[in-house]
Structure formats: structure tokens, C-alpha cells
């Protein structure tokens, strides 16, 4: 797995298009949110800004890059090449997504820490981290699943739009309007409960019982996303 991850990291660093998508775009978006944090906090709260930062990185750095990378490797038959070796499927897939995941995790850690320094620290750091990690796991698995219906890196620009924009929209909807109305609907949407967790963890005031209840749909979405990935992912282009 590690040789694959190392080769993948080398490729990511040498591919300008991937670098722009996975590094510059999320950084620029995050800088925008942090720079105008008072405006966004006025619309929602500081917790909302933090949640949107996490979802922006998860959507663009992790989800879109995962889909683009896997679709490209499959299109060029690199996946088939790797499967002609002794490496197992799980090791291959893990090796391929590991660099992208680590890059995204480092990004989110740096950006959220920066936001905490300039905007104030979260009330419950551990809960925030749990919610952020669950969000990353869900987006990674959704990325593997979406790669199954994506024929090429170019096609990924289309197939990733619904989920990347959709999850950020859900995070904004939940973060801005709260869950006083339509609570069940908002919580069962992808990223809805995770957003509520992150907002509560950052702003404070979330009871332990409520936090545990919100972890259920958050974890359920991780399971759903992994199931989708297992069913939809393909190793070779369709004939």
C-alpha cells in the first residue's frame, strides 16, 4: 500500500491541474470565509463558518480530487496494471486515496486552526474533530462511489457537482437556519447532522445526549457512503 501511496503523492505533486483543484481552490475559498468571517457569523454563527470551512475542504480537496484521481487512473488502465500485481484491492484503493486524504486533513487542520486563532476557539474541540473526521470519511467514500460512474477526469467536473455543491448547500442551510424547523429533514440529509454537530461543538451549548443523537445519522451516512462505494466502484473502463 505504501509504495502506491508514495507514487500517488509524486503524481499529485507533478500534476498542476490536481494541485490547483486540491490545494489552491480550497485555500482561496477558505481565505474568503475567514476574511469575511464577521459577515458570515452575522448570517449564521462562528460555528457555521467553521462547518463551511470543513465542508469546503472535504468537498473540493478530498471528494473532487478523489473522483478525478480514480477516474483518471482507471481510464489510463493504471488500476488494471496495479491489479496485475500481488497487491490486493483494499491496499490499492487505500494507497491511491491516502495522499489526497492526508493533504486534505493537513489543509483542514491548518485552516481551522487559523480560524480558531483569529475567530476564537471551539467550545468542544473533541466533538468538533469527531464530526469533521466523520464528514471526511463520508466524502471519501462518496468520492470512491462517484468515481464508479465517472468515465474520465474531465467527466468528473460534471459528476462531482451535485454532491460537492449539495453538501456545502446543506451545511449552509443547517448552519444558517438552525434546526428549529424541519429538524428531521435537515439531519437525515448528507452532512446535515455533522454540520449541526460542528456548529454546536464550536459555539457550545450542545448537551451530551443531543451530541450522541446527532452522531447516529452522521455515522449512518458514513456507512451508506461506504456501501455506495462498494457497489459502484469499477476497476476497469466499461467495454
Amino acid at each position: 500500500m505504501l509504495p502506491i501511496a508514495k507514487s500517488e503523492l509524486v503524481q499529485v505533486l507533478r500534476d498542476r491541474a490536481v494541485l490547483i483543484t486540491s490545494l489552491l481552490m480550497p485555500l482561496a475559498a477558505s481565505a474568503f470565509f475567514i476574511g469575511f468571517r464577521d459577515v458570515f457569523a452575522g448570517i449564521g454563527s462562528l460555528g457555521y463558518v467553521a462547518a463551511v470551512l470543513v465542508f469546503t475542504i472535504a468537498a473540493f480537496s478530498l471528494y473532487v480530487t478523489t473522483v478525478t484521481t480514480l477516474a483518471g487512473r482507471r481510464q489510463s488502465l493504471f488500476l488494471k496494471r496495479l491489479r496485475s500485481t500481488a497487491a490486493g484491492d483494499a491496499a490499492i484503493l487505500t494507497g491511491l486515496v491516502l495522499p489526497v486524504t492526508v493533504i486534505a486533513l493537513v489543509q483542514v487542520a491548518v485552516i481551522v486552526t487559523t480560524f480558531a486563532v483569529v475567530g476564537g476557539t471551539p467550545a468542544d474541540v473533541l466533538l468538533f474533530v469527531v464530526a469533521a473526521v466523520a464528514t471526511f470519511a463520508m466524502m471519501l467514500a462518496l468520492g470512491i462511489g462517484t468515481a464508479g460512474v465517472t468515465t474520465s477526469p474531465e467527466h468528473a467536473q460534471v459528476t462531482t457537482l451535485p454532491l460537492s455543491l449539495g453538501t456545502i448547500a446543506v451545511a449552509s442551510w443547517v448552519g444558517i437556519t438552525g434546526t428549529q424547523d424541519l429538524a428531521e429533514l435537515k439531519r437525515i440529509m448528507p452532512g446535515g447532522a455533522a454540520t449541526e454537530l460542528m456548529v454546536g461543538a464550536w459555539n457550545g451549548g450542545l448537551a451530551l445526549g443531543d451530541a450522541l443523537l446527532l452522531l447516529v445519522p452522521t455515522a449512518a451516512w458514513v456507512v451508506v457512503a461506504i456501501t455506495i462505494a462498494a457497489k459502484m466502484f469499477r476497476w476497469e473502463p466499461r467495454r
Binding site: 509504495p3 502506491i4 507514487s7 509524486v10 503524481q11 507533478r14 500534476d15 487512473r73 489510463s76 488502465l77 493504471f78 488500476l79 488494471k80 496494471r81 496495479l82 500485481t85 500481488a86 497487491a87
Partner: peptide, 19 residues
């Protein structure tokens, strides 16, 4: 072929060979 275009020839052989 099915190779990664951004890897060098030596890197490719080492990767596939090791795997």
C-alpha cells in the same frame, strides 16, 4: 500499457516490480 504518465520510467519499474 496502463502506466501513470507523471511517473518516470525507473519509478514505474520500481513500483510495479515491488508490488
Amino acid at each position: 500499457s496502463g502506466f501513470a504518465p507523471e511517473l518516470t520510467v525507473a519509478e514505474t519499474v520500481r513500483l510495479i516490480g515491488r508490488l
